[in-house]
Amino acid sequence: MKPNIEEIGSLLALKRHERPEEGYFDDFLREFHQRRRAEESMKRGPAGWWKQASEWVSNLGASKWAYGGGMAYVAIAAVWLLVPRGADTKPPPATNVGHDVRVPAPVVEQLDALDLRSTTQGRTGEQEF
């Protein structure tokens, strides 16, 4: 026995209920944009990378602030680690100057010549030089 046209139509109409699984289009969109960005950056070369990155950031929505904060933290940490600090700096190595260096006379002798006695004009504990 043959089905009539209406019966075939009804049987085919059941196939309308066929759907991709739940969440299919979320993954689909992700893959679509990944492929699109990859194609565009291939076309543009290195200049495309910057536009791709800025487009990615603009598409992040509110979470871009979290990413921005994280990136700022990483940048500060990198600067702190890479830039030399005062305690770590070393003086340049000594070089031979090629002539005699005269050592000055000991300071002790000069001090002996000074009059360190207290004067009448000064108050207790004060000295005039």
Binding site: K15, E18, P20, Y24, F25, F28, L29, H33
Partner: peptide, 22 residues
């Protein structure tokens, strides 16, 4: 505007999926 194109994908994606799958 990539979000506008996303909206078009979501609007016609299921119908086109049915077409291609069948």
């Amino acid at each position: 505007d990539t979000r506008a194109f996303d909206a078009l994908i979501l609007k016609y994606g299921e119908k086109l999926y049915g077409l291609v799958y069948n």
